[in-house]
Design a protein around this nucleic acid. Sequence first.
DNA 1: CTTTTCAGTGTACGCACGTTCACTGAAATT
DNA 2: AATTTCAGTGAACGTGCGTACACTGAAAAG
Lengths: 224, 224
Amino acid sequence: MREAGAGRGDRVGAVAEEASGAVGTRQERKRRTRQALLDSALRLLADTSLAGLSLREVTREAGIVPTAFYRHFPSIGELGVALVEESMRTLRAMLRSARRKPADDAIRGSVAILVQQVGRSPSHFRFLIRERYGGVAEVRKSIAGELRLLGSELATDLARYPGMADWDADDLRMVADLMVGAMLSVVTALLDVSGDPRAEAEVVSVAEQQLRLIALGMAHWRRP
Amino acid sequence: MREAGAGRGDRVGAVAEEASGAVGTRQERKRRTRQALLDSALRLLADTSLAGLSLREVTREAGIVPTAFYRHFPSIGELGVALVEESMRTLRAMLRSARRKPADDAIRGSVAILVQQVGRSPSHFRFLIRERYGGVAEVRKSIAGELRLLGSELATDLARYPGMADWDADDLRMVADLMVGAMLSVVTALLDVSGDPRAEAEVVSVAEQQLRLIALGMAHWRRP
DNA sequence: CTTTTCAGTGTACGCACGTTCACTGAAATT
DNA sequence: AATTTCAGTGAACGTGCGTACACTGAAAAG
């Protein structure tokens, strides 16, 4: 949703040069500038990593003066942590979406939702994948923590499936982690083929097969 | 192997302050300085990413003057590509090692080899994982290409397994990619728990279960 | 209406960076 | 023995960086 606004112009200063900069209460305007900083950073992060991103670049892109940055974040690293939270909201929305679906074919449905969400906010996914093992320790830590939580959520979701009532917590967690890993692989592949529908269809097909193979393993787990 | 030399001292300039700097033919000394640059970079990359690494830092760590860097690499990015090649040699050595083993329990054996190799040269693995989606485009490209090759190698290896003679190329490739992805997940987990034997044992146990689940899926693939 | 708050401004600073260039001196070539 | 090659040196440059500081002016609080 955010993403759409950010991707539109690409050259636009996000605050100073727009009419919206002059309206609203003080805290509303501050919130908007903060968001402009986040959007600008995300846009620039398509080309480099957080470690290679300068405070001045970000403020330039956002259309404010460098020193004003400190009114919103104490450092680029902290802005990174805020971006993790924002991106994770996108990821959670995805999980919620998958949960809502009744899903006659759960695998096909899940992959479709994944494709849809990655298409909707590619920058968020790219950011998470790039910075997960990136050069900024606090951001790595933040992402690791959030992904651990995501794994737990997925594990409880799995527990509700009909055939899995008798699975113990450790096995659920093990499978959930395998699926999160596979999911991140797919996201990566999707970002790589972005814009090529034929290649995307191939990625989707392979992803579905891989998940189906995992599901097959689950069906025979501890009952030979 | 390389790794051991680099990890030994940690504070040492690798060329200027060592006796070895004064012996050997000209091309031999050049080779040694080049290696010192690679080692120094790898050491510094434990803390940051390639994008956040400066030419001057690397030369300082290696014990040479900044301008001498250009005698060996045109840019930090090119040094990064060289590091990819070096790190990939480690990865390939691992695959070869796994191939040599007769393996009564192939899964347990493979995971053990993985643990061993990651323990032997953690920096190489950390580098590959960090820069795979890092901020330097040429390095990303280089790693992607090498990993694709690795997937092909693994696919041909799989084809030689007894039960898989009738698998077609696409399915082999699909499984191989799934396994490479799982492998990289395990490496990541191993690097995170580095130094804690109890946590490492847990990672190994989960990894073995995950691979076993995949194997179970393979056993029932297209024969219900 | 007066005072306070505070997001954003503009200048100025010291510093580390990448890169240039002319150089040195020992190894390699002749 | 004379000449050429070339890895490594050292000074110098312009640039972009993070951050400090005093400021402005409109919104919020009194």
